[in-house]
């Protein structure tokens, strides 16, 4: 199971690196979100995979009973997803504005439009 997950994470990372290096900002964004999802899966796996119950505390109890999943990686991933969502939204707006200003999202063409001083 761990091996399959690791291979999946590696595949996602490889695809995202390919997209991010393509020189097109739109692909960069897609690659970036794919990469952050790959990292989220990696964190999830770092918290150990198990077939356990969700980490909820039953009514009237003070601690979860029985075998429960590790709640911490889930909290970390949730935080990372929220932050990643915000950053992704901002980047998308930025690229949209960039497109409005330069008429292209190809990074090389932007480079030509705005030569170094």
């Amino acid at each position: 199971m761990e091996l399959i997950m690791a291979a999946l994470i590696g595949l996602m990372a490889a695809v995202s690196v390919y997209l991010m290096l393509a020189g097109n900002m739109l692909r960069f964004i897609v690659g970036l979100s794919l990469l952050s999802n790959a990292v989220n899966l990696a964190i999830f796996e770092a918290g150990r995979l198990s077939f356990a119950a969700p980490p909820f505390i039953a009514e009237g109890e003070k601690a979860p009973t029985g075998d429960v999943a590790n709640a911490l990686p889930q909290a970390l991933i949730l935080t990372a997803i929220v932050i990643g969502f915000g950053l992704l939204a901002f980047t998308l707006v930025l690229v949209y504005r960039l497109y409005g200003a330069f008429g292209t999202v190809e990074i090389d063409e932007i480079e030509n439009a705005e030569p170094r001083g």
Binding site: L35, S36, V39, I43, E45, A46, L76, A80
Partner: peptide, 25 residues
């Protein structure tokens, strides 16, 4: 901004990966 954003986002993903793996270890 796009240059700044692109590299810094990549770096923070590296940071997150590092934290995750360190937690796993």
């Amino acid at each position: 901004a796009i240059r700044y954003v692109a590299l810094n986002l990549t770096a923070t993903i590296g940071f997150l990966t590092g934290v995750g793996l360190l937690y796993g270890a």
